[in-house]
Computed example of a mutant assay.
Amino acid sequence: MKVFIVSDSHGLTNELLEITKRHAHEAAAFIHCGDSELSDNCKELQPFISVGGNCDFVRSFAKERTEDIQGIRFFITHGHLYNVKMTLMNLYYRAKEVEANVVCFGHSHIALAEKMDDVLFINPGSLLLPRLRKERTYASVQIDNGQAIVQFYDLNGQEMLDLRKIFSF
Rank of each mutant, 00 (worst) to 15 (best):
K165P: 11
D35Y: 06
P47A: 01
L17H: 13
L120S: 07
F74T: 07
G71T: 10
V150K: 06
S126R: 00
E67T: 12
I122T: 09
F57H: 11
S140C: 00
V84I: 07
D162V: 12
A100H: 08
L127E: 01
D35I: 05
L16W: 06
F152M: 01
F169L: 12
K134G: 08
A95E: 01
F121E: 02
R59I: 10
V103S: 04
K43D: 15
R22G: 03
I149W: 02
G157P: 09
V150R: 06
T20I: 05
L91D: 06
A29W: 00
D162S: 14
D68W: 07
E67A: 11
V141N: 02
F152Q: 01
P124V: 03
A28R: 12
R164G: 04
F152W: 05
D117T: 05
F167I: 11
N90L: 12
E99G: 09
S108N: 08
T137V: 09
A62W: 01
L16S: 04
N101E: 15
M116N: 07
H10T: 10
E135P: 11
V58C: 11
A148Q: 05
M89V: 11
S140A: 02
A113G: 10
H32Y: 03
G52Q: 03
V58H: 13
Q158N: 14
K21Q: 14
T66V: 15
V98R: 06
E26Y: 07
L112S: 10
I49R: 05
L16T: 08
D35S: 02
L155R: 12
Y138R: 06
F48H: 06
Q147E: 15
N14D: 15
E67L: 02
L45A: 09
H78A: 00
S7M: 04
I19F: 01
D35A: 02
R65W: 00
T13S: 11
F169E: 03
L161V: 15
L129M: 13
K21L: 09
I72M: 06
H23L: 07
A27R: 04
S7E: 05
